[in-house]
Simulated scan of single mutants.
Amino acid sequence: MNQTEYKHELIMPNDSIPVKIFSFSAHNDLRIIPSHWHRSAEILYVRRGKLNIWMNKRKYELNRNDFIYINSKEVHSTQSPEDNEVIVLQIPGDFLKTFSNNESLYIHCNTLELKDNKIFSAMRELLYQMYLYSERKDDAYYLKVYSLLFELGYLLVKNFRVKEENIDIKSQKYLDRLSEICEYIKEHYQYNLTLNEVASEFGYSPQYLSRMFQMYTGSTFLTYLNSIRLNSAFKQVMSTDLSIITIAENNGFANVKSLNKLFKETYGLTPSAYRKSIKNDN
């Protein structure tokens, strides 16, 4: 079974070009990459298979040739429900300013909500060519990637930029705040973290924070916290020889029984049995 590592928080551009572009292929319909955010904008382009995305209080089911633009700081999570191939373009926040003369930039662009047209076809080709040139890395490839990137930026800004007066400022304010809360949880999930503690840290009542989480991530605070813990535990089960007890302790679980229960509910096996099955497959 092939597993793909997902690192979304700290995005480093490819060598010689100001963006990061890569592809991944993954199949684990039980594993959901937890809600997260980053300062880079991101385009996910499905070349093969399917990809599910949860964002802005709804679920997007992307099929072959679908793509979606995720704005900077938009909280989202992903799942690969079947074998797939996805091209990912991540554009750092500082570079985004070159697309908008240093003004704020909000893009609404996806093939699920908007009618497919020649612009989408052109964008697919630009994304694919950028990926090919970045992989090929022949002489002066970075110049070609730059030219394709600015052509893509032109299409995005000209056709899909949302005017500032049409942006839901209140929702954006909550998303900005929620991104800070998510970051705090990721930095403290190893400890005995509670809803009351996080609410107090950010000046909210537990009830208010609970409603905010449910509205903007589609999950409860505890579900989100456990998904962060489980995602980290999963990586340690797969890539280390640490005991399951140690992994439970490292990731904030009250005891190994709690980890075993959540792991089995998600992956169908206990951590020990899952680790053994992977070794047998290899």
Rank of each mutant, 00 (worst) to 15 (best):
Y128T: 07
L155Q: 09
L155A: 08
T98K: 11
S104C: 07
T4N: 04
L143T: 12
L89P: 01
L10F: 05
E135T: 10
N101K: 10
I169S: 14
L44Q: 07
S227L: 01
E61Q: 10
E180W: 05
A140F: 15
R124G: 03
E265I: 07
V237H: 08
I181P: 04
L143M: 13
L225T: 06
R275K: 15
S104Y: 11
E165R: 13
V256W: 03
S200H: 08
N110H: 00
F160H: 07
L259Q: 04
E42H: 03
P92M: 06
L51Q: 07
N159I: 11
Y216V: 02
Y131T: 02
E85D: 15
V46P: 01
N56Q: 11
I228R: 09
L114F: 03
K73A: 05
L222K: 13
K173F: 11
F221M: 03
F99M: 13
W37H: 11
H188A: 03
S243Q: 09
R275V: 00
G252P: 03
N110K: 03
F150N: 10
G203L: 12
L193R: 02
G252Y: 05
V157L: 09
Y204N: 08
R211E: 12
L148K: 06
S104A: 13
R64L: 04
N250P: 00
I247W: 02
S227R: 05
E5Q: 12
E151Y: 01
F150E: 08
E9Q: 08
R275F: 03
A254I: 15
F253Q: 04
F150I: 13
Y128F: 09
Y6W: 12
T240V: 08
Y191L: 05
L222W: 04
N250G: 01
S219M: 13
A26E: 10
S171R: 14
D139K: 15
P206S: 07
N192S: 12
P34C: 10
M130W: 01
N260D: 13
E85H: 14
L126H: 06
I278D: 01
E103S: 12
I167L: 12
I247V: 12
E82P: 06
L262H: 10
N251V: 09
D138N: 14
Q129Y: 08
L269H: 09
K57Q: 14
I181N: 06
L225G: 08
L143K: 15
N196M: 10
E201P: 07
I21V: 14
Q129A: 08
T220F: 06
N65C: 02
F150S: 09
F160P: 07
S40Y: 00
K144W: 06
K276C: 06
S100H: 05
N14Y: 01
L126F: 11
V157P: 09
S134E: 14
L155G: 00
S134A: 14
S25E: 11
Y267Q: 02
F253N: 04
S80A: 15
K173H: 09
E9Y: 13
S179I: 09
E183A: 14
Y204L: 10
K276D: 13
G153I: 08
K173I: 11
N14T: 01
A233N: 06
E180F: 10
K7E: 07
F213I: 04
